[in-house]
Amino acid sequence: MRKKEREITWMKVKKRKNRYLFLLPYALIFTLFNILPIVSSIFLSFTYFNILETPRFIGLDNYFNLILQDDVFITALKNTLVIAIITGPVGYLGSFFFAWLINELPRWVRSVAVIIFYAPSIASNVFVIFSIFFRGDVYGYVNSLLMSLGITRSPILFFLDPKYMLPICMLVIVWQSLGVGFLSFVAGFQGVDQSQYEAAYVDGVKNRWQELWYITLPSMKPMLLFGAVMTISSSFSVCDVTRTLCGFPSTDYAARTVVTHLFDYGYMRFEMGYASAIATILFLMMILCNKFVQKFLRRLGT
């Protein structure tokens, strides 16, 4: 039986070999720049490698060093997790919430609203403007406001004081977080079958919340999964915002993230093996978080 199946598969492969030619260019480049790097990154993480010499196998030493001796990595890990755990869900729920709110607006208002909400995430480095708002002297807008209201007496060094760095970075990240997932949600809301709502009114659905829970959510599950994937991969890889606003390195490494740690060891100290170990940990965190969230989302509404 199984042999027969295999034969059928083989027949298919033979008959449709032209189609593989279509896939070939993409598959080749994809393997070369996405699959192979992951595999080699995992391999290199078990070695000492400084680009000049051939990699030397050192077992789990990199990982032991990372976890037991590298205080900065622990800070970076903590920061990344804090940022991901706060901005990830806030951005995700925010995307969903705003997509839901603008769904019933007239068409042109909706498209303007989509542009306004989506623009921060593609406006590359506009977030630099926040460094003017939160400037550390009396001429910083937030500082002068706080001082004129009598909340503080001396200006706060927002980007130098470890107490304030992460919260402000997170504010900026949340501001940028209505990304591709948001677009997917907007389209998803539009695609919900209207007759379902009408049926639901007859069945006694009473308010917006019930509509959302019983009809909209279940029919948007594919978009919810997609949005989650996009949110997780972006919220674990924060580095531009913290690096630009708080400096690299930042005071006391208070704004260091896993990705900036990776850059530090990979591109400045050229300890590629060590950097690969960091990359592998980041990779595992992203994949595990994704698997977990997907499992959770699949159960939603059933």
Binding site: F33, I35, S41, V229, S237, L262, M272, A279, I287
Partner: peptide, 17 residues
């Protein structure tokens, strides 16, 4: 699966390749 991680993870081997 590749959507689930960002380019930063693969940046070093990418450079080598």
């Amino acid at each position: 699966l590749a959507l689930m991680f960002t380019g930063y993870v693969t940046s070093i081997p990418n450079y080598l390749i």
